[in-house]
Design a protein around this nucleic acid. Sequence first.
DNA 1: GATACTATTGATAATCATTTTCATTAATAC
DNA 2: GTATTAATGAAAATGATTATCAATAGTATC
Lengths: 156, 156
Amino acid sequence: MFRGGWGQHSWWQGKFRGCGYRITLGREAILDVLSKSDKHLSAEDIYTKVHSKYPNVGLTTVYRTLDVLVNLGLVFKSDFGDKRARYELAEGPKGAHHHHHLICTNCNRVIDYTDFIDEEIELLNRTEKGLSKKYNFKITNHLIQFYGLCSNCVGK
Amino acid sequence: MFRGGWGQHSWWQGKFRGCGYRITLGREAILDVLSKSDKHLSAEDIYTKVHSKYPNVGLTTVYRTLDVLVNLGLVFKSDFGDKRARYELAEGPKGAHHHHHLICTNCNRVIDYTDFIDEEIELLNRTEKGLSKKYNFKITNHLIQFYGLCSNCVGK
DNA sequence: GATACTATTGATAATCATTTTCATTAATAC
DNA sequence: GTATTAATGAAAATGATTATCAATAGTATC
Ligand SMILES: [Mn+2]
Ligand SMILES: [Mn+2]
Ligand SMILES: [Zn+2]
Ligand SMILES: [Zn+2]
């Protein structure tokens, strides 16, 4: 069967196969949509895009695939306060891609930033160390989001 | 009508009245439950407690009151990954009470911490300043959560 | 390529926290 | 007290996400 224009071995397929998952057309399409977007997509956003090209891929499969991808650590699932979960690639061909978010409370725009990560990480490490000791809590991850008004909304 | 043991003027009633809201028995009961708990309660948790004392207060009123309280800034609404929203007092008789969270990914325990390390505050100030300038984004609030294993779960 | 095994899928129904609706009740101003 | 209208409860609606289950399609083996 012909398989779109993704080439024989996409960067993610190794990890995927290694965990015993099968490579299917729907899964390829979903990862393709995620790879080509820099937005924070909802399951339905993804479904709409995939479905326009492959009308036989259903919303259920999108949810199920996203779940797998999140568990594999290939995708991040976030909650920005609208009622739906948002998904974005956590790791691309180039590797990991940790970042934090600026969220506009007026227009709901979400900005990724990685600029200050280095400086932040340094201080985060110290903070995490202090907290770990004080509360005997083994920190494995963090969520940092700043809320406010984006450049479009700050002038009211 | 007799009104429980809350005294004539609870600390929150001024703010409440000032915004044009009426003081009702249900609202008093809900705020009383929140005041007396140091947990992160769901709407239904609150409903259950209120309802045992005032069986004529409904779940809808709990949701509506919490919504008002969140908008007034008297209550914080959080999402810890179980599917329900969690509520806690943001401001008590003693004043504001900003804190961050440690969340156990194993048992879902949530630990508040307010004893910010100096470095953490320093980090936030510098980051916020840098981000504001770079993205022309007016930061008004932040959400910081650390995920990991609590003292009960760290030993597996 | 054909076969067997079983993971994956789509259509549908179910779940469940939260919202809406709307007629009734009660807090507040006068 | 009376009038005004915010607040309420019961019930139905909503909407994102999950569960069900028979049909389909990947994959390993021949
Ligand atoms: Mn992002
Ligand atoms: Mn808290
Ligand atoms: Zn904005
Ligand atoms: Zn724990």
